[in-house]
Design a protein around this nucleic acid. Structure first.
Length: 432
RNA sequence: GUGGCUGUAGUUCAACCGGUUAGAGCACUGGAUUGUGGUUCCAGAUGUUGUGGGUUCGAGUCCCAUCAGCCACCCCA
C-alpha cells in the first residue's frame, strides 16, 4: 500500500450526510435574497493579489499574515480570495454594472481562504454568503441589507443572536475621533496591555474591543464615536435606525463595534451569537463608500454583509435546528434469485422514468438483506420481484411503515404512479 | 503567530504503578427450516494504539520530534 495522503490542515470534506444541509442552507439564502430582488454573482476564487492589498488594506491581518499568495508560471502574483467584497467591486467596475443596474443588488456564495490557526468555527478554507448593494448612499439601503440578513437568519430558524449596529463615521469625522481616542488613551498608556499600546498607533478604534479587563475598564470612560459624528453622518445613522424600526428589525446600538477591514465607513453592524464560544461573529458588514473609487472606479457608495456558513451551521446545530430534509420518498427494488435481476433492472428504469428515486443494490443477492438495507436506508416502499412476479409481468409493492403489500401489473406503472409519492393502491386494494 | 489539552476497532469510550493473546457498547456481517425488514437471541470479523525515533528485559502507558484536532489569545466568518 502506498502512503496515505491527508486533507490539508484547516480544511474539511463535506460528506454525503452533511451536504444536504449545505444545499438547504444555500437554497434558503438564495430564496431570501430573491425576495429582496438581489441577483447572484460568481467571481473566481483567485484574483490579483494587489486587488486585496488595495481593497482590504495592506496593514490588516488578512493581508499581512493570512493570505494565500502564489505566483503563476509567468510570475504574476495572485491570491486565493480571503473575502468576497473586493472581487465583486472589481467585477462591478470591470463590467460597468453601474450602467445597467442602478444600484446593483448582488448576492454571492463560495469558499474563502485565510491562513489562520484552525479552531472550531474557524477554518483555512471556509464559506461565506453575502450581499452587496452598490450604487446608493440612501440610509434605507443600509437597513435593507441588514433586514435581509436578519430575515435569512430567521428563515433558518436561528434564535440566539443579537444585532449590534454602529456608525464609524466618514473619512472626515473618523480621524477626529481617532485623535480624541489617542488623546484619552495616552493618559492611561502605562496601564494598557502590550497589544493596546501598539493599537494606539496603528488602529486606535481597536482599543475599544480589547478583552483585557484593565483595558476594558479604561475603555468605559473613553469618548464615544457617536459624539464625534459630523452632521451628515449623524443624520444618516438616525435614518438607518428609523428604517430598521420601520422594517421591524431588532437591534441595539453598540458604539464599540469596529469592523476589521479598512474599507468600511459609516454604518457598521454585526450579528453575534452566544452559542459558539469565542468565535461569536456570525455575520458582519457595513457601508464602504470609498472602496469603488479606491479600486479604480468612479466614486460609488455601497453597503453589504458577509456571513460564515460553517458558523451558521454550528449555531443551527447548537440550537437543535434540523436542516435535514423530511425524508426519502423513493422505492427500493429487491429481487429474489439471480434469474430476476434483469427484470428488476427493467422495472428500475421504468420507475425512474416516472421521476421516482430508485435504489437497487446489484451486489446484494440475499433477499432478506435487501429488505434490511431498505429499512436502514429509510426507504418507504419496496418493490419485490421474484420469479412468480416476473412470469406474470407483475411486481409486489410493499409499504414499509404499515407492512402492507399489493401486487400490481407492470403496466400499472404508467398510470398509477403519476402522483407519486401519493399512492391510492394501499387504501383501495389490500392483500396480504 | 503565542500558550495549553488531546490522539486506542467504522464510532463512543475502557485498559491499575510500564507487564505477557489491547477490551466493551453501538454499528457492521452471517444465522434462528427454503420469497419478507424494524424487536429479540446466537455467532463472527475488526486495530501497524496518529506517525517516526528514544529509554527499558518489556511501552497504548514514560521521553523527544512530527502531524492532526480541540481550547484560549490574536483576528475574524
Amino acid at each position: 500500500m502506498s502512503e496515505k495522503i491527508n486533507i490539508p490542515r484547516g480544511t474539511f470534506d463535506i460528506l454525503p450526510g452533511e451536504s444536504s444541509k449545505w444545499q438547504k442552507l444555500l437554497n434558503i439564502f438564495c430564496e431570501t435574497a430573491n425576495l429582496y430582488s438581489y441577483q447572484e454573482i460568481v467571481t473566481p476564487i483567485f484574483e490579483s493579489a494587489h486587488l486585496f492589498e488595495r481593497g482590504v488594506g495592506e496593514v490588516t491581518d488578512i493581508i499581512e499574515k493570512e493570505m494565500y499568495r502564489f505566483t503563476d508560471r509567468k510570475g504574476r502574483e495572485f491570491a486565493l480570495r480571503p473575502e468576497g467584497t473586493a472581487p465583486i467591486v472589481r467585477s462591478f467596475i470591470e463590467n460597468h454594472l453601474g450602467k445597467e443596474y442602478a444600484p446593483a443588488k448582488l448576492y454571492y456564495f463560495g469558499p474563502m481562504f485565510r491562513y489562520d490557526r484552525p479552531q472550531k468555527g474557524r477554518y483555512r478554507q471556509f464559506h461565506q454568503y453575502g450581499v452587496e448593494l452598490i450604487g446608493s448612499n440612501n440610509p434605507y439601503t443600509d437597513a435593507e441589507v441588514i433586514a435581509l440578513a436578519d430575515h435569512f437568519l430567521k428563515q433558518i430558524g436561528i434564535k440566539n443572536y443579537t444585532l449590534e449596529i454602529n456608525s464609524i463615521g466618514c473619512d472626515k469625522c473618523s480621524p477626529v475621533y481617532d485623535a480624541a481616542l489617542i488623546e484619552y488613551y495616552s493618559k492611561h498608556k502605562d496601564e494598557l496591555c502590550g497589544d493596546c499600546v501598539k493599537r494606539l498607533e496603528k488602529n486606535p478604534k481597536r482599543l475599544l474591543d480589547c478583552k483585557n479587563e484593565k483595558c476594558q475598564l479604561i475603555g468605559k470612560e473613553a469618548p464615544s464615536i457617536l459624539d464625534y459624528l459630523d452632521e451628515d453622518c449623524a443624520a444618516a445613522f438616525e435614518k438607518v435606525k428609523y428604517y430598521l424600526n420601520l422594517l421591524k428589525v431588532d437591534y441595539i446600538v453598540n458604539p464599540r463595534i469596529i469592523r476589521g477591514l479598512d474599507y468600511y465607513s459609516n454604518t457598521a453592524f454585526e450579528f453575534l451569537t452566544t452559542s459558539l464560544g469565542s468565535q461569536n461573529a456570525l455575520l458582519g458588514g457595513g457601508r464602504y463608500n470609498g472602496l469603488v473609487k479606491q479600486l479604480g472606479g468612479v466614486d460609488t457608495p455601497a453597503v453589504g454583509f458577509a456571513g460564515g456558513v460553517e458558523r451558521l451551521l454550528a449555531v443551527a446545530e447548537a440550537e437543535g435546528i434540523s436542516l435535514v430534509d423530511s425524508g426519502n420518498s423513493g422505492i427500493y427494488v429487491a429481487n429474489i434469485g439471480a434469474e430476476t435481476i434483469d427484470y428488476a433492472l427493467a422495472l428500475c428504469a421504468e420507475f425512474r422514468s416516472k421521476g421516482i428515486s430508485v435504489e437497487y443494490e446489484i451486489d446484494k443477492n440475499n433477499f432478506k438483506s435487501q429488505l434490511k438495507s431498505a429499512n436502514r436506508l429509510n426507504i418507504p416502499y419496496v418493490c419485490i420481484v421474484g420469479s412468480e412476479e416476473m412470469e406474470g409481468q407483475r411486481f409486489t409493492l410493499k409499504e414499509m411503515n404499515s407492512g402492507k403489500q399489493v401486487t400490481l401489473n407492470r403496466s400499472d406503472i404508467g398510470e398509477k404512479f403519476n402522483n407519486w409519492p401519493k399512492l391510492s393502491v394501499f387504501e383501495a386494494e389490500q392483500t396480504c
